[in-house]
Design a protein around this nucleic acid. Structure first.
Lengths: 207, 207, 207, 207
DNA sequence: TGGTAAACGAGACGGTACGTCGCGTCTTTTC
DNA sequence: GAAAAGACGCGACGTACCGTCTCGTTTACCA
């Protein structure tokens, strides 16, 4: 990420933050930062037509354009931080771990399905893709925001599952993750039948 | 697709085209149509910065902007037709069918890998995503151009494979397709190890 | 005027029209000609925003653009013929000739004033100026349509007036005409006081 | 005039300008303003075909279109300010005041005649009419730029003339002004004979 | 009576200019 | 020295008319 280092983004080497690296002049406005991230999040929200502009963000945040550009180089950087700081929440349920892998995944996929049917997940994902693709940055960014969290949860859950020795847990996790993301992005149904057949492949009944 | 129906785009109900449904007025210029689709394709080509504009298309085609807008409402519509008419070729090898599913898929995936490493596939895919996302159209369009062809080939190959009765051939095809597309889009490596592990899942050695 | 010579516009040297110089092929459509001139007139009429376009004329006349261009080279030519053929009437009262020059002029100027106050004269004049100026033709055209008729009437009336020998009748006519046209074009009031003072100059009480 | 009020156009109530009503934000570029007005003037100049476009102005001024539109809503507004600020000089000699009204007017009319014969006055006037009429604004604007200055000079000169008590000086001034403007606009000759006859009417030999 | 040729409607075409939007930068005053 | 305000150059948007150009169709005439 290209975001400038600032007093409010003290992601330097740990153990140095407390030294109070005070700079001269007016300190960065905490209020502005929050307003910008909140504005960006709201403009991506449901009901929007996914036309996120820097001018729009600045206007809605009651902030000058320059202030946005001072701290974030691109739209994507704003979004990435909005996601990272929790302003823009991508609806992603937590995979339960009851010991029954198949049942846990089924439950989780059904929760996802609700989000998708509600439109929130699909709309947000597609808007993110649009916003990211517009700024001529790499699509790696989508990965960080959309794919990675899903993948991580799945990998963890599969790792803790009691499966045969020869089973490639990572590949199974990838399989679920890839198909899910594809269906979210392309607005394909994630219906009960798909869930069953997918689970038959990656987590058959007696596993 | 929103493209207007015209003498040069005779996608009406089959069996009626031969009736020569001649319209009045100056007929649509075949030359312009080709020049536009070719221009769009070239501007998406490798080395480009994926900044496809209607003005750019018109200029490169030696055509007035109005002529582009007359026949295609959006950039995406131009692209869709450019792909459909074969001007913009998305590099997609053909899956061989030697009877050995695992070997066929391995061969095909390695070919894909070459395209990806060459950068062509990844660049083009991401450019398409960008172009499509910019014009605020639905991402369904990506599906039609990028995902569907891959999926179709895979489904056909799995259908013809000699597999056990209980095997869900479609789900296996989906698994390969999803993972492949994800890796192309997000520029992740499709290396030999991934291929082996993927095939271990969907087409184990003795199948 | 640049209008093409046609069967319907037989303004050739006199004495030759009756020879019926019939041409081969489909004759010019009288209906189209009328429709076009009428359309042009209506589009210049009151309430319009004076945005006369060739496409608009053709559309309103239910005629193809080509048909307009076939017979008239410019918008102005259409207008000139519309005025000439009486479709577009510029409201110009007739100067009476009762023998009392001052009273006749006063009466006529008051009639003009009504037209001007009604808005018709001013609107039409300004629209004509606009239409003529847009087509990069000379302002001579305005003269032919707006100024000349006024001037002719005035010259005739002054010629028939019983005035002293040394009086320059033409100059007096010009004085009235110029001031009137200026006031119409620039929407200045032609009120009773102006009329009186003007007549005091060009046609004093006992003349 | 519709021009926005700005630091560079401080036409507020007199006596308040000196208070330095400084605004926040980047101040309007004096250089751009001048370049635009100069460009507009040059594009109206002699030899031009009177095809003044906003894009042309912007291009010649080396300025973005938006900057022109930011400060002037229409072409006419640009022209009005160009005239007002002295960039576009309408050639109008000064009426001398030697005490001899007839001789002064004769001299002045002959100077005007030279301008007209040179083509400058006629061309510029007609171009202004064209530019103003194209932008669908009122022809009042012509008045302000072309007619008013002439009228003012004439009224002043006639006011200072020693004439009989009953003489309507204003009407005489109007007479000269109207006829002159008409002849300029419609490219009619302002020859010696016309001057003599006009002066015989408004300023006879022994006045 | 049938050929032929011009006029016609329809409408596509290459252009020019329009007026607007958003970008990312720059310049000024204010805090 | 950060922030607001907002002007700036730039590039693309999508639309409106321009005047020209094919087309297929109609409608007279003349042979």
């Amino acid at each position: 990420m290209e975001t400038r280092r600032t007093p409010l983004d003290p992601a330097g080497p740990p153990g140095t933050e407390d030294v109070a690296p005070r700079r001269r002049g007016r300190p960065r406005s905490q209020a502005s930062r929050e307003a910008i991230l909140r504005a960006a999040s709201e403009l991506m929200g449901p009901g929007r037509h996914a036309k996120l502009t820097m001018e729009g963000i600045a206007a809605r945040a009651g902030v000058s354009k320059q202030t946005v550009y001072r701290w974030w180089k691109t739209k994507v950087d704003v979004l990435v931080e909005a996601v990272g700081a929790g302003y823009l929440v991508i609806p992603l349920p937590v995979i339960p771990d009851t010991g029954d892998l198949r049942e846990d995944l089924a439950h989780w996929l059904r929760e996802m399905q609700e989000e998708i049917d509600g439109g929130g997940a699909t709309h947000l994902s597609q808007s993110l893709v649009a916003a990211i693709a517009t700024a001529d940055s790499q699509s790696r960014q989508i990965h960080g925001m959309l794919v990675a969290p899903v993948r991580e949860q799945l990998h963890a859950r599969f790792r803790s599952a009691r499966l045969g020795d020869g089973v490639d847990r990572e590949m199974l996790a990838e399989t679920v993750g890839s198909q899910l993301v594809m269906r979210v992005l392309f607005a394909e149904p994630t219906d009960e039948e798909w869930i069953r057949r997918l689970l038959d492949l990656v987590a058959p009944e007696g596993s």
